[in-house]
Write a protein that binds this DNA or RNA. Structure first.
Lengths: 111, 111
DNA sequence: ACTTTAAATATCCAACTAGCTATATAGCCA
DNA sequence: TGGCTATATAGCTAGTTGGATATTTAAAGT
C-alpha cells in the first residue's frame, strides 16, 4: 500500500495529472501517452513508474506493449484524507458555534 | 490563485499534512505548530511558507506572533479535480457497459 | 533602555527530481 | 535469422527540497 506521500507527490506534476486524465478515458500504451507531450519516451516511462509507485496506475503486458490503466484505489485514500480533514474542521466550527451561542446566551442573561 | 501543482506538492509532505491536521482544530502559532515535531523553528516556518504559497494556510499578525489558520478553499480545488477525474472514469465505464450490453444483445440475436 | 520572546531570513548541505541522450532488452514479423 | 518496434535502463545535468545552525527583525515586558 503506497503512502499518501507518494500519491500526493505523484499528483503534484501536471504531466502526470494529464496522464491520469487520459487514462480515465481508458487503457493506453506508453507511446500513446507520450504522443500529446513534447517529452521523450523515457521521460514518460519515468512518470509512469512514479504513478505506478504511488498506486495510481497499473500495467499489464501485451507483447512488447505495456498498456496502462488507472487504479482508482489510491484516489480513494486521498479522498478519505481530505474528508477526514474537513470533518475535523467542521466539528471544530460547530464547537465554536456552540461556544458563541453560549457566550451570547450569557450576555443575554446579563442584560 | 495557487496552482494545483503547488497544492498537491504541499500536501505530499507528512509534516505539512500534520500541520494542516493541527490547524483543522483551530488557529495556532509557529511555535505551537513546531512543538509536536523534533524539527527546528525555521524548518516549520519554511513548511508554513509552502502551505501559504499553496493557498492552504493564511496568517494574521498579532504582536510578535503569526497565528495560522487553515484555508479550505485550496482543498476545494483538489476535491474538484479528483471529482472530475472520477466523473470521466465513470462515464467511460458506463460507455463500456453499454458496449458490452450491445455486444451481448447481438450475440443473443445470433443464437 | 534592556532583555526576552516570536518569527523570519541567510547560508549551507545532502538528497531527490525531471529532463535529456544513448543504449539495452525483448517481442514481433518477414 | 535479421530487422523493426515498444519499452526500460543507465548515466548525466540543472534545479529543487528539507533539514540544520546562525543571525536578524521586531514587538513586549520590566
Amino acid at each position: 500500500m503506497p503512502s499518501l506521500d507518494l500519491t500526493f507527490s505523484a499528483l503534484s506534476d501536471p504531466t502526470r495529472r494529464a496522464i491520469l486524465a487520459r487514462l480515465a478515458l481508458g487503457e493506453a500504451t506508453v507511446l500513446e501517452l507520450a504522443a500529446p507531450f513534447s517529452l521523450s519516451q523515457p521521460a514518460i516511462s519515468k512518470h509512469l513508474k512514479v504513478l505506478e509507485g504511488a498506486g495510481l496506475v497499473s500495467r499489464r503486458i501485451d507483447g512488447t506493449r505495456r498498456p496502462c490503466r488507472l487504479e482508482p484505489g489510491a484516489l480513494d485514500r486521498v479522498d478519505q484524507w481530505l474528508a477526514e480533514l474537513r470533518r475535523v474542521l467542521e466539528t471544530n466550527y460547530n464547537r465554536l458555534d456552540g461556544l458563541l451561542a453560549e457566550l451570547y446566551a450569557q450576555e443575554g442573561d446579563a442584560q
